[in-house]
């Protein structure tokens, strides 16, 4: 049945290279999450504001991010911006695409989180003499974080998985990119990509488990 010999040794020799790729992957994911969280909070605030323009802009961003594929958004950053004269490399395009996507999904999460914090809390903070930004930063935000923490970790795992799309726009130093390079050199597709899958699985599990531990430590009453 099998006329194929597995060559795991060559694949295992490439482990250090792939580990370096995994670090780049994690870097992109973390950066995209930081940008995504900041943009997401502003989008959530904008979509709840009284200004029609702000609400409209936030709605366009959120609905575009949620209703088109992440790959299309990365293409937009890589090829689309190019025709406006903005040329960015594949790393920046991947980062921009994932951050845009994250922000759209996280805005919805944050909107739910904001709704979960009673309005009276902000009012009480204001009547204690805090300014509006202070009340938001010191009173509302920490309570919101408690609600959105688990959706946030899910999005983090998503961000890691989405970084694999970088290879399609020619990124060659993240985990999938490194794997694809090795694949092109050796044609041991199955072996290399199985190891890459193992890497991604371990990264995802580390994120989930450490988030669970962190959440348990941070959010117990």
């Amino acid at each position: 049945m099998f006329s194929y010999t597995f060559h795991w040794r060559a694949a295992f020799q490439a482990l250090p290279q792939m580990l370096a790729g995994a670090v780049v992957t994690l870097e992109i994911a973390v950066l995209s999450m930081i940008i995504g969280i900041v943009c997401g909070i502003f989008l959530a605030l904008a979509s709840g504001s009284h200004s029609k323009i702000l609400r409209g802009a936030a709605a366009v961003w959120i609905e575009t991010a949620r209703n088109t594929p992440a790959l299309l958004q990365i293409y937009m950053a890589y090829f689309g911006l190019g025709s406006l004269g903005i040329h960015i490399n594949s790393f920046a395009a991947l980062l921009a695409g994932i951050a845009f996507n994250n922000a759209g999904y996280l805005a919805e999460t944050f909107r739910g989180g904001l709704r979960g914090v009673p309005e009276t809390q902000a009012r009480a903070a204001r009547s204690l003499g805090m300014t509006a930004p202070q009340a938001f930063r010191i009173i509302v935000l920490p309570q919101m974080m408690r609600i959105v923490f688990y959706p946030l970790t899910n999005q983090m795992v998503w961000a890691v998985l989405m970084t694999s799309l970088g290879v399609i726009v020619g990124l060659d130093n993240d985990l999938t990119g490194v794997t694809q390079n090795l694949n092109v050199l050796t044609f041991r597709t199955f072996e290399f990509f199985t190891i890459a899958a193992g890497f991604y699985y371990v990264i995802a599990k580390i994120i989930t488990l450490s988030a669970r531990a962190l959440g348990w430590r941070l959010f117990r009453y």
């Binding site: 998985l161 694999s164 399609i168 991604y200 995802a204």
Partner: peptide
């Protein structure tokens, strides 16, 4: 927990 792209490549090969 594994990117879909990787799953596609693995199953395809």
């Amino acid at each position: 927990s594994v990117p879909l792209l990787i799953q596609l490549v693995i199953i395809n090969s």
